[in-house]
């Protein structure tokens, strides 16, 4: 599968935010190796906000449970950034009860990806979200 897929879909820049360095590594590896995405990583919400003030990715993968500033708080701050309008933010969480998912979507999240995620499938999921966002972006 590998090579053909990579070239085909490697079009985006993904920002991964998680307090777990290992998770970040796996996500980064997976998205780069399988999806061919350009991946940037931040260890906390604060860091992510700082990063986002400088640049704008195509999509943000945001962990929910993080110390100091959790996912939802971070999302609110992101939404306030002028350059991040219409920026798809996807939550990654172990909490995927239906009402939890609804709550996240209500906050403005584009999608919720459950943890633990399958690194082999992650790129595909992300691509699907990007494809859906495309018309809105235009």
């Amino acid at each position: 599968m590998g090579a053909a897929q990579q070239t085909e879909i490697a079009t985006g820049h993904i920002l991964c935010v998680d307090d777990e360095q290992d998770i970040l590594s796996i996500a980064k590896t997976s998205l780069e190796a399988i999806g061919g995405f350009q991946v940037s990583c931040c260890n906390s919400g604060v860091e992510a906000l700082e990063w986002l003030q400088k640049g704008r990715p195509d999509l943000v993968l945001l962990d929910v449970m993080m110390p100091n500033m959790g996912g939802p708080s971070t999302l609110k701050q992101i939404q306030k950034l002028p350059n991040c309008k219409d920026l798809p933010v996807v939550f990654m969480t172990a909490r995927v009860q239906p009402q939890e998912v609804e709550a996240y979507l209500a906050l403005g999240a584009s999608q919720v990806i459950s943890k633990p995620f399958d690194p082999m499938m992650l790129s595909e999921q992300v691509q699907t979200i990007l494809d859906q966002q495309q018309p809105h972006a235009e």
């Binding site: 777990e20 998770i23 997976s30 943890k115 633990p116 995620f117 399958d118 690194p119 082999m120």
Partner: peptide, 15 residues
């Protein structure tokens, strides 16, 4: 940790 382990192994075996 399991996510990390499992993800790493999947990537190794798959990619």
């Amino acid at each position: 940790p399991i996510t990390s382990i499992s993800g790493s192994l999947s990537l190794i075996i798959g990619a």
